[in-house]
Amino acid sequence: MRQEVDGGYLWSPVREANGARSRFYDNMRRAAPGDVVLSYAAGQVGRVGIVSDYAISAPKPEEFANIGIYWSATGWLLPVQWLDANFAVRPKALIRDLAPLLPTTHSPIQPQSGNGNQKAYLAEVDREVVDLILAAARLPAVDLLAAPTRTAADFVTKLDDVVERNIQHDISLDETVREQLVRARMGQGLFRKRVLDFEPECRITGLATPNLLIASHIKPWRACGTAAERLDGANGLMLAPHADFLFDRGLLGFEGDGRPMFSSQLTDSDADKLGMHVVQRPPPRPLHNDSLSYLDHHRVNVFIP
């Protein structure tokens, strides 16, 4: 709790330690900007925050150290702008009013006792639960209208900086490889050349002028496990700048046959203003077989359904 509040985020593994899916972890991908988050720890709700962006795939934060030593090394990071107010509301003291408002399944609190559920991490509750807690804390709801200022892009930069620092200090890599890996972070160098061999034009706009296109990793640069993945031309698409932005943010994806997919979180109004629905697209082309595993990663870990 301390690390997350200080860092301005929530973080969870993708799956439980035994590989099973968890509704509490899946909720990290369902949370949307503007959602209210109540932080429960040590038997009390002590902080309230506002989700400021969609979750991104991210390694376990370094500041966790040995916390969650059995968790997987990668998971979901959800940007949250925590309000300054500190308070202490014990659900047990409110259980008579709180119990009828709790969800019948996947509740964060046991309605009979008011104790926290052991496996609960991020639970979905009705707004009445939030209102009850805030009223007990004597916090005005108007504070929740504050516009969050931190986005996922801030965290991506920080996470990429950590990966780049590790690459720079990796003595198992020769200097030339380290240089190419760092350039690949920005879609430059050997990676860009290799992507152009696979993808000569933007799949959304048909734009084929190289200096107007961005070499975008399909499996994000920070999420790649090896130098080979970071430099693999099959792990890239050449995209127009606005398409690259949507693809990196999970608002645009592709089927294996090349058909584009648009996230439900990209409104028709915004898509129209970006020209997504009116652009004369080139006919879909199946992606190279070597790209399909990277595309699977993007569809599961980056794309927002």
Rank of each mutant, 00 (worst) to 15 (best):
P283I: 02
P108H: 13
I67S: 13
F262A: 09
D6Y: 04
L213D: 12
P220Y: 10
S52V: 11
G75Q: 13
R183V: 04
A136R: 03
P61G: 12
I133D: 11
N117I: 09
N289E: 15
V125T: 05
A20H: 07
V142W: 09
G275V: 01
G114I: 03
A141H: 00
Q112C: 09
F191I: 14
I50K: 08
P33Y: 14
V195M: 14
S52A: 13
A153F: 03
G256F: 00
V130M: 13
P210H: 15
V182S: 13
R96T: 00
T157D: 04
T209D: 12
G258A: 09
P286V: 15
A73P: 04
L252C: 06
R194P: 01
E199M: 00
T151P: 03
L139Y: 05
A88E: 12
A234M: 14
I304N: 13
I214P: 02
I218L: 00
A223C: 11
T157L: 03
A42V: 15
R230K: 07
G187V: 01
D154L: 02
I167K: 12
N27E: 01
G34E: 10
V163Q: 15
P286R: 15
S39I: 08
Q118I: 04
K119C: 05
E255D: 02
G49Y: 06
L78K: 14
E229R: 13
L159F: 02
I95H: 03
A228Q: 07
N18G: 04
Q81C: 04
I133F: 11
T105I: 09
F24R: 08
N301C: 14
H106G: 02
V177A: 05
L274W: 00
D53K: 06
V89S: 05
W71T: 07
L295V: 06
G187S: 08
A135E: 12
G256W: 01
D270I: 04
R96K: 03
P148A: 14
A227L: 07
T104G: 04
Y25S: 11
S72F: 01
A55S: 11
T74R: 15
K92T: 00
A41W: 03
A228S: 05
T105E: 11
G206A: 06
E63N: 09
A271P: 07
D143E: 12
M186H: 10
G253T: 14
N289R: 15
V182D: 00
K158M: 02
Q118W: 02
S22I: 10
T209N: 13
Q168D: 11
W82N: 10
R259S: 00
L251V: 13
I67V: 12
D131K: 06
L181A: 08
L231D: 04
K60Y: 02
K60Q: 01
L94T: 03
L139A: 11
A93G: 01
E175N: 03
E4K: 14
R96G: 06
Q112R: 15
M1K: 08
T209H: 12
K273R: 10
T74G: 11
G189L: 00
R185I: 07
L213M: 12
V51G: 02
S39G: 10
D131H: 06
I56W: 01
T209A: 13
L77T: 09
E201D: 06
Q110W: 00
L94K: 05
T176V: 14
F155G: 02
P220M: 14
H242D: 10
R90W: 01
G236R: 08
A243V: 13
D268E: 10
A184F: 03
D290S: 15
M238T: 12
L173V: 12
V37C: 10
P140K: 15
S216M: 08
